[in-house]
């Protein structure tokens, strides 16, 4: 398996919205490669005939009735907000569009 370059790690950090500085990149990139090397052993172990498992206990069709249940008050909802205004969450200016 190929090693992650420093740039690739920076790209992953970008996708994950973590502002890694140079020192952190230097520190983390080799560690990630050690981990990836260890987990790469599973590649090719299970063939196409093996069905992937996403839930250990197979269940289907767990539904809720369409009935309103009480939620939070606005005060509770906003209780942890770093900033709020007009009963809304105040966030810094948003760049770019929604997806």
């Amino acid at each position: 398996m190929s090693q992650l370059s420093r740039d690739e790690v920076a790209h992953l950090a970008d996708l994950a919205r973590i502002d890694l500085d140079d020192a952190e990149l230097d520190h983390l990139a080799p560690q990630l490669n050690v981990i990836l090397e260890a987990v790469a052993s599973i590649q090719g172990v299970a063939g196409a005939d093996v069905v992937p498992t996403s839930h250990p206990i197979p269940m289907t069709n767990v539904f809720r009735e369409d009935v309103v249940v009480p939620g939070l008050t606005p005060e509770q909802a906003l209780s942890g907000a770093p900033a709020s205004e007009d009963q809304k969450f105040s966030v810094p200016r948003i760049l770019g569009d929604e997806q």
Partner: peptide
């Protein structure tokens, strides 16, 4: 921007092991 605040806050708020696992 909100995005910059997210990046900086997540960098400051998460420890190394958390960052490693998020990146992996």
């Amino acid at each position: 921007s909100a995005e910059e605040v997210m990046r900086v806050s997540r960098d400051a708020g998460f420890g190394d092991e958390v960052k490693r696992r998020i990146l992996i």
